[in-house]
Design a protein around this nucleic acid. Structure first.
Length: 759
DNA sequence: CTATCGCACTGTAGT
DNA sequence: AGTGCGATAG
């Protein structure tokens, strides 16, 4: 019965066996949290709990899928019936079921962030406001923040503190925009991501019978990654667990990294107050990482004040020291890290799979991609622009959405003139006016344009309406794939892309085909009972990059991703790159939220992803908006206890790099102690040798760029003396990053014009 | 109505 | 550097 308990340590076992009453599991990094959650669920089922009455909320769909598989290994098919998924997917499901209570229909659309911003832009313009001031992203964030704190548009307008805050931010109209936004979403029969949670709260608040139903249904409620839940999510779980009181939350306050988007660390810090008879179990033994990595991580996180008492330890071996790589530019950082990976692979016989490069922002991936490609190392990028955010994909999805839900305003805007059918903004605006005057939905006007307006464009509009109507007729007869491929063909979308013979056009055509393949897979999957287009759209709106599956035959790749994306993952060899002030910790985070502690937790998460070896790197200069910029090493480097650091590696690497690039080029400077650089930052830019004499002025000829080498002293007609910091060789294309010191000011340049070598 | 060009601006994570 | 905007021409 409890055979699977044998491999567990004492607190883990205790957590698995504690089945009744509120439970909080504080799970340190690498402490076997997933294992405990898996076994606990399996244990509940073996104890006779109906899997249908277990609710398990995870952070990503992928995590849910993996956990379901692991539970299945223990209890078999019963695992299928568990209610498991992200907050958004589980409550979207419940909302579809109960939609009528809120005045929605069950085929409501889910607006993604782009849809929301687009709608806000429309509202801002309609109200005659300046969208340079009322930036859609900013307005959206304010609305989103309010919803996550369960503040409705009316509450927002009536709250003097919020109003004062908006006034101070010179955005007094946000509340009005909020109210219109909510109204328009409702009329479009659409919910945005935040609404899925907000409306669930409203549903449970205003419909006690519905709440009661789910309260009784879910005998056990479990929440993974509890530290990253927001108030809205917390209240839902609390309400659901109110009768049975079987609520189990698992989390680690030290790994809370989503406060910026509304996650409330107070949820975990105050949980004890909400549940006086709470049992708390701490999982403190780390099974993942080496002694060095665990201790280094502890030395960093110890600087945070707001945290629960916890002592993460490991009995693993010491392992190698943490290496620090210093690069003069972002490109060099890419090359040094790629070379490091290459050499580790060769000397230790490792696979690409064993490595991950973690950065703070997606924009940093470029340099690593280029460098890895040059060394023929396969890599995969997680995050960035996801498949489902691509224009061509969103276009086809918009057609499908609109076929299902003709109130979907954002889908309508996307496709009304796509492909071009001569219905421009002016015509659309006219239709909107007619609809508003007659007080009927836009689709009513479009579908019966002859009755409502007469004009040159009527035939084009009729054509569009007939198209959509014909699609609608297919819904009951055909499955999702048949409808989607029919739409792709007959709408002209596929044709337009097919005729575009550019490289991008080809790739966009392939992307649409891939979407159709994905729909085919959905239809062919026996697990999916409902094969309708509506069912497919429900799942697709909540898919993210973290969830996309890999081709299992071709997955030996180095992983490149943001630290946020790496949550919950682990790799033998981890590179944390771009450790520079203003980048990590991020300047934005410090300015707007003044939350250094969250950045530090992010650093902690990054460190604790590593199992065997950790390498950190930073660059002295970096491109930003196509302009080079000087960088200082991150304060976080200083926060790692020096006894866990090894510095020398960067020196040998650097000289190897210089040799490779400039045969015979001088090594810029032997990096000394890393900490010395931190205390004497100016030394970074000091000229190595003051140059007095040089050859008479003669501008660089393109052929002479071969003479450039890292460390080479140069003079520029405008910027004066400088040192070559980095060379970038791309086929015949050679670029140099040069650091100039003029009047105490440092400038970086990327051009050979008006440049000459100094003896 | 559509295409194109110059200009201004961008500055974080992702359900 | 990339994007998205408005102005202008076709």
């Amino acid at each position: 019965m409890t055979d699977f308990l044998t491999g567990l340590n004492e607190p883990q076992r205790e957590a698995v066996l504690h089945t009744d009453g509120p439970l909080m599991i504080i799970a340190g990094a690498g402490s076997g949290k997933t294992r405990v959650l898996t076994y606990r669920t399996a244990h509940l089922i073996r104890q006779g709990v109906d899997p249908f009455r277990i609710l398990l909320l995870t952070f990503t769909n992928k995590a849910a899928g993996e956990m379901r598989q692991r539970i299945e290994k223990v209890v078999g098919n019963d695992a299928r019936a568990i209610w498991m998924g992200t907050f958004h997917s589980v409550f979207a499901k419940i909302l579809r079921f109960e939609a009528s209570h809120l005045g929605f229909t069950s085929n409501f659309s889910i607006y993604d962030t782009d849809d929301s911003k687009s709608l806000i832009r429309s509202i801002v313009k309609e109200r005659g406001l300046d969208d340079k001031i009322y930036k859609p992203g900013v307005v959206f964030n304010r609305i989103s923040g309010a919803k996550n704190r369960l503040i409705s548009a009316d509450d927002y307008l009536q709250n003097p503190i919020i109003q004062a805050d908006d006034a101070a931010a010179r955005l007094p109209e946000v509340g009005r925009i909020f109210k219109i936004y909510v109204d328009r979403c409702f009329k479009a029969n659409a919910m945005d991501f935040d609404d899925l949670l907000f409306n669930t709260n409203i549903l449970f608040r205003d419909h006690p019978d519905v709440l009661h139903k789910y309260q009784h249904k879910f005998r056990h409620v479990m929440v993974d990654e509890f530290q990253d839940t927001n108030v809205s999510q917390y209240l839902i779980t609390r309400k659901l667990a109110a009768i049975h009181q079987n609520i189990c939350v698992v989390g680690d306050d030290a790994q809370s990294i989503y406060a910026f988007r509304g996650a409330d660390i107070q949820n975990i810090l105050n949980f004890e107050k909400d549940y006086p008879d709470l049992s708390t179990i701490r999982l403190e033994q780390n099974y993942r990482s080496t002694q060095t990595i665990v201790k280094a991580a502890n030395s960093v996180i110890a600087r945070n004040r707001a945290q629960l008492r916890k002592e993460v330890w490991t009995s693993n071996e010491d392992g190698p020291l943490i290496e620090v790589i210093k690069a003069s530019s972002d490109n060099e950082e890419g090359r040094l890290v790629a070379t490091h990976i290459f050499e580790e692979k060769v000397t230790h016989g490792l696979r690409n799979n064993d490595f991950a490069v973690l950065y703070r922002t997606n924009a940093q991936s470029r340099a690593f991609e280029e460098a890895l490609r040059k060394l023929n190392i396969k890599y995969r990028i997680i995050g960035g622009l996801s498949f489902y955010q691509r224009k061509e994909i969103k276009d086809l999805l918009a057609y499908l959405r609109f076929t299902i839900n003709q109130s979907d305003e954002e889908a309508f805007k996307r496709i009304i003139n796509l492909p071009k059918r001569g219905i421009g903004d002016t015509t659309v605006a006219k239709i909107a006016v007619v609809a508003a005057e007659k007080g009927i939905p836009v689709w009513e006007v479009v579908a019966n344009i002859g009755q409502h307006a007469a004009g040159r464009w009527n035939s084009a509009i009729e054509g569009f309406a007939d198209l959509i109507k014909s699609y609608g007729l297919l819904l009951d007869k055909k499955d999702a794939y048949e409808v989607a491929s029919h739409v792709a063909k007959t709408s002209g979308l596929l044709k337009e892309l097919y005729e575009d013979k550019t490289v991008e056009g080809l790739s966009r055509y392939e992307n649409v085909q891939e979407l159709l393949n994905a729909i085919k897979e959905f239809v062919d999957n026996p697990d999916n009972e409902d094969k309708s287009l509506g069912a497919f759209l429900q799942t697709v709106s909540l898919i993210t990059t973290a969830d996309t599956d890999e081709d299992p035959n071709d997955n030996d790749k180095v992983t490149l991703m943001t630290i946020h994306g790496a949550k919950g993952l682990e790799f033998d060899h981890v590179y944390i790159v771009g450790l520079e002030e203003d980048l990590f910790p991020s300047q934005m985070m410090l300015q707007s939220r003044a939350d250094l502690e969250e950045e530090r937790r992010l650093f902690y998460v990054a460190i604790t992803r590593a199992e065997k070896r950790l390498v950190v790197s930073y660059a002295e200069s970096r491109y930003q908006y196509g302009r080079p910029k000087m960088c200082e090493p991150s304060r976080f480097l200083d926060e790692i206890d020096t006894k866990y650091l090894q510095i020398s590696r960067s020196a040998s690497r650097r000289s190897a790099e210089s040799r490779e690039l400039s045969d015979g080029g001088e090594v810029l400077r032997q990096p000394t102690s890393f900490l010395k650089n931190l205390t004497a930052k100016t030394s970074l830019n000091r000229a190595t040798t003051p140059v007095v004499n040089h050859k008479p002025s003669e501008n660089f000829a393109p052929s002479d760029t071969r003479q450039l080498a890292v460390g080479q002293r140069v003079e520029h007609a405008k910027f004066g003396f400088g040192t070559v910091k980095d060379l970038d060789i791309n086929g015949t294309d050679r670029k140099a990053v040069i650091l100039f010191e003029k009047a105490g000011e440092k400038t970086l340049l990327l051009s050979f014009a008006k440049l000459r070598i100094v003896e």
